[in-house]
Design a binder for these strands. Structure first.
Lengths: 108, 108
DNA sequence: GCCATTCATCAATGAATCTTGATGTGGATG
DNA sequence: CATCCACATCAAGATTCATTGATGAATGGC
């Protein structure tokens, strides 16, 4: 039986929460082509600067993005490790063929 | 450039939201060994029956679980298709190597 | 130093979500 | 039919989250 430690469960829940917003998914979409500065993301994503900053922070705190300041500008990019981690996680959610397709255990 | 249609973005956000709760992840964990009835899940997961029902509904509406009634009992199980879909989705979030590791575009 | 630009943060509002406890529903049993 | 059991649903309160608008911090140009 799979048994994620509570700490991992918490982390997983946080990750998924970070991904549970359309704007944040759009940000990730944009970043999958490479690094972008906040100013360009603002143009592309039709949000306010303040709101975008909030979403970027959410993704960064979840470990999905990293940022890099260069002069006045801040560039965000995807953290490849995080995405791999997510893939592993999803994999672990998969039904193991082992168990009977239909429960043999009766409840009465 | 990846470009998820808005409808897919919405669906993806809903999926991730369904996975963004520790109790729901525990439910999935339990179900990855096979079908379980609600009564057993209640025992395993230290929640109230009512709350568990709420979370099961959330996962079911997201398309992650299916249910099957048998007499007085209801059995829930993971929907394999949904998990595969999720894997594909995660895959699509991956940074494509194509873009420059560091943005070439200058902002001034 | 002074001002403009880029981005982050804060406070306040409203919306969505979680949680609880009570009630409802459908199946089984007698 | 009456009752019990497994589960779902509902209403109400608590909490978390998204969004807005204003302010703050850091950088660079003058």
């Amino acid at each position: 039986m799979l048994f994620l430690m509570p700490k991992d469960l918490t982390r997983a829940a946080r990750w998924f929460h970070a991904l549970s917003d359309e704007t944040r998914l759009q940000i990730i979409e944009r970043l999958s082509d490479g690094e972008q500065c906040v100013c360009d993301l603002t143009d592309m994503l039709a949000t306010t600067q303040s709101l975008l900053s909030f979403h970027l922070k959410t993704l960064k705190e979840a470990g999905i993005l990293t940022d890099r300041r260069e002069g006045r500008w801040v560039y965000y990019s995807l953290s490849p490790e995080a995405i791999e981690e997510l893939e592993r996680l999803i994999g672990s959610l998969k039904p193991r063929g082992r168990g009977p397709r239909v429960s043999l255990k009766r409840c009465d």
